[in-house]
C-alpha cells in the first residue's frame, strides 16, 4: 500500500510560482490563478496509478509527474478549485487513505542571508530556475520535509510579500525554497512561509535527515 507523504492543495497559484512551474514542469503548464494539488507518495513508481485516477476522475491537468529515488510526486491543476479537490478525493479513495494520513511537514532549516555578495549570487544564479538573485539582495532559504510542501510555502510567501521566487525544489528527500528580495520583503516572506508549513496537520513521522 502506498504511503502518503505530501498532500497539499494550493487555492490559487501565484504569478511567479505559476511562471516557475511553467519553466520546470514537463507536462501541461499551469497558469496563475489556477488551483493546484501536490501529492507525494512512496513507493515512487506508484505515482503512475495516482495520475491515472486523477485524470480519469476529473478535468484536471497534470503538470509534473516525477518518480525519484524513493518518492513519487504529482502536480495537477485546473481553473476550477472544485475539480482539483475532487481529484484529490478520488486519489485518496483509490489509495484507501485520508488527508490526515499525510506527514505533518517539518521545517528542517530556515535562514536569511542578508545583502548577498556579488560572488555568491553568481553561484546561486547558475543553479536556480526561477528569477535571478541580484547582488546585495537578501536571500531566504527554507528546507522542509516532505518535499512537496515547498510549493505551498513558496505560494504563501508570494501572496504575502513582494519577493522574487528564485527556486522551489519540490521533489526528493527535502523540499527547498529560495526567495530573493529587499530585506523588508524577505522578513515578511520568511514569516509567511514558516507559518504556512506550521499550519498544516498530519501524522508525525521520523525525519530521514541523518545529522
Amino acid at each position: 500500500m502506498a504511503d502518503l507523504r505530501s498532500f497539499v492543495f494550493l487555492d490559487s497559484l501565484q504569478p511567479q510560482l505559476a511562471a516557475f512551474l511553467g519553466t520546470v514542469a514537463k507536462g501541461f503548464l499551469p497558469i496563475a490563478g489556477e488551483a493546484s494539488l501536490i501529492v507525494e507518495i512512496s513507493p515512487g513508481i506508484e505515482i503512475n496509478r495516482v495520475t491515472d485516477i486523477a485524470v480519469k476522475a476529473t478535468d484536471v491537468r497534470p503538470g509534473m509527474q516525477v518518480v525519484e529515488r524513493l518518492y513519487g510526486m504529482l502536480e495537477i491543476h485546473s481553473p476550477s478549485q472544485a475539480d482539483v479537490r475532487q481529484a484529490g478525493v478520488a486519489i485518496l479513495e483509490a489509495l484507501g487513505l485520508k488527508e490526515a494520513d499525510r506527514i505533518k511537514p517539518k521545517v528542517l532549516s530556515s535562514q536569511v542571508i542578508k545583502h548577498v555578495d556579488d560572488l555568491q549570487v553568481q553561484l546561486i544564479n547558475r543553479n536556480r530556475q526561477g528569477m535571478m538573485l541580484i547582488a546585495r539582495e537578501s536571500l531566504f532559504i527554507m528546507e522542509v520535509e516532505p518535499a512537496g510542501y515547498a510549493a505551498f510555502a513558496a505560494n504563501e510567501a508570494e501572496k504575502a510579500s513582494e519577493i522574487n521566487v528564485i527556486d522551489v525544489r519540490m521533489t526528493g528527500a527535502f523540499g527547498r525554497v529560495y526567495l530573493g528580495g529587499e530585506q523588508r520583503d524577505i522578513d515578511v516572506a520568511s514569516v509567511a512561509a514558516t507559518k504556512a508549513i506550521e499550519s498544516l496537520t498530519g501524522r508525525e513521522a521520523k525525519s530521514s535527515r541523518k545529522d
Binding site: P15, Q16, A19, F20, G22, L29, I31, A32, G33, V165
Partner: peptide, 20 residues
Amino acid sequence: DDRQTQLINRVRHGHMIVAG
C-alpha cells in the same frame, strides 16, 4: 497573456516574466 508568458519562461535564462 498567461499562456504566452509560459512559453517565454521555458526558454529564457534570466528573470521570469509574469502575466500582465
